[in-house]
């Protein structure tokens, strides 16, 4: 990919811009593949039941990571520790809340509604 910046732009910035542009393109391509893959699983009946759910969940997880990495530029090696800790803590809280809620309500379903 070539880019035409102003003549006074130092060369290092050309590299930076190329790298960052590439990041968005890679992100787009991967996201397209993963999305199409997820829909293909359902449309083409590639898998069924639990396997399909597991595969879809995995594809969604990977795609979320792709978005974080290539669109939001979160990089394990080069990012702030504060930000990373925040994300990890958020993930922990999300897991507790979502899995706890589903566990509780599922248990209720079995005990009181089924």
């Amino acid at each position: 990919m070539s880019n035409r910046g102003p003549a006074d732009t130092p060369p290092s910035e050309y590299e930076d811009e190329g790298r960052e542009r590439l990041s968005y393109v890679v992100g787009l391509v991967l996201a397209l593949l993963l999305t199409t893959g997820a829909f293909a699983v359902v449309w083409l009946d590639l898998l069924s039941g639990g396997a399909a759910l597991a595969a879809l969940g995995l594809l969604a997880l990977v795609q979320a990571v792709v978005h974080l990495r290539y669109f939001l530029h979160i990089d394990l090696a080069r990012s702030h520790r504060d930000d990373l800790l925040l994300i990890l803590f958020t993930v922990l809280i999300l897991l507790i809340m979502v899995s706890g809620t589903i566990w509780i309500l599922y248990d209720q379903h079995i005990r009181m509604m089924a």
């Binding site: 759910l53 969940g57 599922y106 089924a114």
Partner: peptide
């Protein structure tokens, strides 16, 4: 809860997959 009484069991937890669904009539 008409549905619970008549036709429960077809439904599955959307996420995550529920292993025991429909076994507890």
């Amino acid at each position: 809860a008409p549905a619970m009484v008549q036709g429960h069991g077809q439904a599955g937890m959307a996420a995550p997959p529920a292993p025991h669904q429909g076994h507890h009539h």
